[in-house]
């Protein structure tokens, strides 16, 4: 049995992986084929690609 109180990264190996895919869509089918739960994100650059605003948002904790 895994230690239920251990840090999350230790529990990751014992549990089931469910994935959010951000980027290359090809990875989604592979995970599907292996019976892994996956949600694909229709990703666009943060803040419409404005790096200054994206950095500001990151600092504000988006």
């Amino acid at each position: 049995m895994t230690d239920q109180n251990g840090p999350q990264y230790q529990r990751l190996l014992a549990g089931k992986v469910e994935v959010v895919n951000v980027g290359l869509e090809g990875f989604v089918k592979d995970l599907h084929d292996c019976g892994i739960g996956v949600v694909h994100v229709d990703w666009k650059p943060s803040a419409g690609g404005d790096p200054q605003m994206a950095a500001l948002l990151a600092k504000l904790g988006v």
Binding site: V20, G23, G37
Partner: peptide, 18 residues
């Protein structure tokens, strides 16, 4: 990512290739 997690709260890993 946050919307995806709302749809499927079981998600525990992000695969990022942007």
């Amino acid at each position: 990512i946050s919307a995806a997690v709302k749809v499927r709260p079981e998600i525990n890993l992000a695969l990022i290739s942007v």
